[in-house]
Design a protein around this nucleic acid. Structure first.
Lengths: 150, 150
DNA sequence: TATTATATAGTAATAATTCTTATTTGTCAA
DNA sequence: TTGACAAATAAGAATTATTACTATATAATA
């Protein structure tokens, strides 16, 4: 079950790479797998730190460039942030984000209502809308309980 | 009419500053006024470049620090972005954003439907939601017409 | 297997943000 | 007013983040 979907994900990745005439190198594969297994939304540096265990000689630039390339061909996303280092998101299906103001974690959540939001008529006429996302901000449960203990 | 609301905005600014024990210095006032008059969502550097005309000796750091302070006390917002330099937003009333993928401009828009979005029940129980915003991405009209000419 | 285009590591450069410190400036109370 | 204190500023330096460059290595294709 798990294996099955992993397999599909990898296939999707490789097919998309080839469509864009990108070689599937061991580094790229490793970066993609690492990111898709990660539950967080890591920065380029975060990915770099983890991938180094597998590729001790890999450079930060390769990781960063690769992640940017991935976002260009649409196999990963770049999370909306507020000026901190860029963070990446392997989940390309429609979902939404909750940002904790205190600890900065970003939690994915799903909502059919949000997915089905209508684009305002005047906007739709004026702009081509390719993506929509609801971004909630606040305090997460972990931070909330921490605070109440103080 | 216009003057009236400008006045109110300034009062709001000064009152909020004082509530947070922040002095209303000429620099702060100028930065705030500049930002609220700006139709864009400028970066710290953008504000710095403009404000220099009024305060030739002001430092970039002062501008940047001031803007961050403003966002902390809630008189300006920080716009959600994707890794580019941080950008600021003087509009603190509920509104939403359209980001153009090509030219990067951010357009404010308003929608009662979006303002009234319900927070999913499970999220509301788990997290304290302080802010919600719908972020649309796509191609703006200017870029669209540019492209079709090619 | 040879060819060729692309990717990589390593290094350097640039850009963005934050920190440090000495000085200046407001604010408040007498 | 004036003096004392707290806070803000400017200037420069340091940190961090991102991107560019180049020689070498590698994968895909014929």
């Amino acid at each position: 079950m798990r294996k099955e979907s992993d397999r599909e994900l990898l296939d999707f990745f490789m097919v998309t790479c080839r469509e864009h005439h990108l070689r599937v190198t061991p580094q790229r594969l490793a970066i993609y797998v690492l990111l898709s297994e990660s539950k967080e939304h890591p920065s380029a540096d975060g990915v770099f730190q983890s991938i180094k265990r597998e590729f001790p000689s890999i450079s930060y630039d390769t990781v960063n460039r690769t992640l940017l390339t991935f976002s260009k061909i649409g196999v990963v996303g770049i999370v909306e942030g507020r000026g901190e280092p860029r963070r990446f998101d392997p989940n390309m299906s429609s979902h939404h984000h909750f940002h904790c103001r205190r600890c900065g974690t970003i939690t994915d959540f799903f909502s059919d209502d949000y997915d089905n939001l209508e684009i305002p008529r005047d906007l739709e006429e004026k702009f081509t809308v390719l993506n929509k996302r609801v971004v909630l901000e606040g305090i997460c449960d972990t931070c909330r309980t921490k605070q109440s203990r103080l």
